[in-house]
Design a protein around this nucleic acid. Structure first.
Length: 451
DNA sequence: TCTCTGCTCAC
DNA sequence: CAAGTGAGCAGAGAC
């Protein structure tokens, strides 16, 4: 392949920018972001992380990943016949045909014609009926048409966004799929991926998972390796807050959600129920995002007062977490930004806004950005170090994909035994925290099997 | 053809 | 009022 057709000469471009003092904004997607290269404290991040990462990303993009197109074609046929059957069933119940893919038309059918769901159906900000997953799931229990619509939506989403779209993105010259990684889009320092986005390939549902089977190793001499950080964001918040109870749980290798449930519900580890663990898991993630009692009750079976109690019990269990979060907000108020472990900044112009809702948003950003951004910092270090070793030590294996807390490799079968400890070591030791970082490895002919 | 909206996929 | 970060699809309407 002629590289010059698809890749700019990266070192030359960077030299050009540097010579002319043209700043490259890091993580500045939002309108309120400021170019931060000139700000003190970020030059090291730029020189030692973002610039070295450019070559790693270029290599990954150029390498691409092998796609089983024939498999997707047959998946497409199955999805089409199932969604068509559902569509006919829905029209029959509705008593007429309409464009099922139009939320506007669907809302009119469900709430004007069929009068489903009581007197005051939820509306969107433009005044049309809301038909999102949350609304329909609530109604699905009592109305077969609604559960069929949800199932139809899922099948059509999978077909349109992945199964039918991906084969069209196979490069004619390489026969592989080459995503673009964007280094300066996400406000927190994460990468983003497009054309195609390989960071949102389905995994949650049984049907969605099938799509991962289409991402396969280069050939019979290769195996896919997926390496993902276990609970990296919770480990980071534990370490940055110095919250001893959470740090200890991680040091002891406990299941963090079970451990949290045991503490907040005050039951022995072995007696934690499924529901308790699930609710503790929801709070653990919610804390990182700045969830309210209202939000938690929406996400669980708990009432609002039960949710408020759970959050209170959570902060009693992990007192330093609350202190840390409020310190982050104070820091942002005083300095106008927050930062990650590597000094990556996110500016928060709304942190002192008079509008409580706007200010609340900025306060959640003040807590979340250092967590999400530090995780991004750490995996970037690992990527740079692994790539360096793959080259210097003449490995045949390649990094293919990054999905925020996961790296995917095409491993030459002759290297299978030796490369696993190398990758695990580099990822787990990319950055030293008070909490150990642990990485799970999986192998397979395809991405699903490797997980 | 372009932009916005509503929706849904991932971490 | 009410959970962070993204990308991409089809529909709908402006031009």
């Amino acid at each position: 392949m002629d590289e010059s057709e698809i890749l700019p000469d990266v070192p030359k471009v960077l030299e050009f920018l540097k010579e002319r003092n043209i700043p490259i904004a890091l993580g500045s997607a939002s309108k309120n972001a400021q170019p931060i290269l000139e700000k003190v404290g970020t030059k090291k991040l730029f020189d030692e992380i973002e610039i070295p990462l450019v070559e790693v990303l270029a290599a990954m993009e150029k390498e691409g990943i092998n796609l089983n197109v024939a498999f997707l074609k047959s998946l497409s046929t199955d999805l089409a016949s199932e969604s068509n059957a559902l569509e006919q069933k829905i029209y029959k119940i509705a008593g007429e045909t309409f464009n099922l893919a139009s939320p506007k038309q669907l809302g009119d059918i469900l709430f004007d014609k069929l009068k489903i769901g009581g007197a005051k159906p939820k509306k969107t900000k433009t005044g049309q009926y809301a038909t999102g997953e949350e609304v329909l799931s609530y109604l699905a229990k009592d109305h077969e048409i609604v559960s069929s619509i949800l199932e139809w939506r899922q099948l059509v989403k999978l077909q349109n966004t992945y199964v039918d779209a991906l084969p069209n993105q196979v490069d004619a010259k390489t026969g592989r799929v080459h995503t673009d990684y964007m280094q300066t889009v996400a406000a927190t320092g994460r990468l983003s991926s497009n054309n195609p986005n390989l960071q949102n390939i389905p995994i949650r549902t049984e049907r969605g998972k099938q799509i991962r089977k289409a991402f396969i190793a280069r050939d019979e001499n290769h195996t896919l390796l997926a390496a993902d950080y276990s609970q990296i964001e919770l480990r980071i918040i534990a370490a940055l807050s110095g919250e001893d109870n959470m740090i200890k749980a991680f040091k002891d290798g406990e299941d963090i959600h079970r451990s949290t449930a045991s503490k907040v519900f005050n039951v022995p580890l072995e007696e934690v129920t499924k529901e308790q663990r699930s609710n503790a898991k929801t709070v653990n993630f919610g804390i990182i995002y700045g969830v309210s009692a209202f939000g938690l009750s929406n996400q669980t079976d708990l009432s609002r007062s039960e949710s408020a109690e759970l959050i209170e019990a959570y902060y009693k269990t992990y007192p330093k977490l609350r202190a840390y979060m409020s310190e982050q907000v104070d820091f942002a108020r005083d300095n106008g930004y927050v930062q990650t472990v590597l000094g990556r900044r996110r500016y928060l112009k709304d942190i002192n806004s008079a509008n409580a809702m706007v200010r609340g948003g900025a306060e959640r950003n003040a807590v979340n950005a250092p967590i999400q951004g530090s995780a991004a910092d750490i995996i970037k270090i690992a990527m740079i170090n692994i790539h360096k070793r793959l080259i210097a030590e003449n490995w045949q294996s390649k990094i293919l994909l990054q999905v925020h807390d996961e790296l995917v490799f095409d491993v030459h079968n002759s290297e299978l035994e030796k490369i696993q400890p190398m990758i695990k070591f580099e990822m787990e030791n990319a950055f030293k925290l008070e909490v150990p970082l642990t990485v799970d490895l999986g192998l397979g002919k395809d991405w699903l099997e490797a997980h």
